[in-house]
């Protein structure tokens, strides 16, 4: 090793905020806006522009579903912050690749 402090010690801080909540939040807001737009404010001209698909509504619903998935993931498997050991991201082994539900 070099003489410099290249070797990391175990994380000593309360750690990083949970990105999953932020992704969920962004998609929840986008989802609500697009769903409302799709339900109430999309004109026939808009719909014919997008090949007859009410794409605002469908995108909004898909984003809401995404938000729910991220919210559930973050809520059911919260970040654990152990005192000394390196931060354990997921307390139990999730069923998919690193916790994809």
């Amino acid at each position: 090793m070099t003489d410099r402090t290249a070797t990391p010690t175990a994380p000593r801080r309360a750690g990083l905020f949970d990105l999953r909540w932020i992704i969920g939040f962004l998609f929840a807001v986008y989802g609500v806006v697009l769903t409302v737009l799709g339900l109430g404010f999309t004109t026939d001209a808009d719909i014919s522009k997008s090949a007859g698909v009410n794409i605002n509504l469908w995108s909004g619903l898909a984003m809401l579903a995404t938000a729910v998935v991220f919210g559930l993931w973050a809520g059911l498997r919260p970040l654990a912050v152990p005192a000394a050991a390196p931060a354990e991201e997921l307390p139990e082994p999730p069923p998919g690749i690193d916790g994809h539900h």
Binding site: I23, L26, F27, A51, V53, I55, S59, A62, T66
Partner: peptide, 21 residues
Amino acid sequence: VLQFFVIVAALLPVTIVGLVK
């Protein structure tokens, strides 16, 4: 990571509508 999801959210609708079209 956030950008990744937003990019997908941007491209998926245009792909779907395009395919329908």
